[in-house]
Amino acid sequence: MSSKQKRFELMVGALTDDLYRYAYWLCRDPHLAEDLVQETLLRAWRFMHQLRDSKAVKAWLITTLRREHARIYERKRLDIADVDEEIVEDPQSQDVLMEVDRNKMRQQIMALEIEYREPLALQVIFGYSVKEISAALELSPSAVMTRLFRARKRVLDQFGEGLVPDELLQEGGA
């Protein structure tokens, strides 16, 4: 196995799962998410000679996946998915969170517009900071903070009583 192929396999092993989760929350379709991840990683394989800096690889993959998603979305003019139908049952983690709560929360996340869903996914799945999200989405840090704040507010309002009061947003911070 060539060193290039070895690097590729290491990258695939390390990043496929998070990329899939990110793609899933981007497009809300498990089959399309799989295609997006596959296309993104195979594109990375074609450009492996350019991907020398291991730290930059993740950012490159995220950018490529976003572009591929935008391209597919534009080409197919996908309809907005029906939230209830698109929730994927996940019986494996029943013991981690009560099934009902988890599915409710998933529905809340699904119902977010992409501008809120995407920074939330980057932060929760990849552990990105506001600064990193701001670079990935080409937005100002304050715009990212506002979107993260609103995303959490809409999702958590259903679960945490008074956890996200409006004053926090209104008084100029996020």
Binding site: G13, D17, R21, W25, P30, Q38, R46, F47, R102
Partner: peptide, 29 residues
């Protein structure tokens, strides 16, 4: 809870499937 909700199950063997696809694809696509 948010993390758990966003942690959707990845299709079994997706990483291997992609690595396998890659092994048959040359850089020229």
């Amino acid at each position: 809870k948010l993390k758990t909700a966003m942690d959707v199950t990845v299709p079994e063997g997706l990483d291997r499937k992609i690595a396998f696809e890659g092994s048959f694809e040359k850089p020229s696509a």
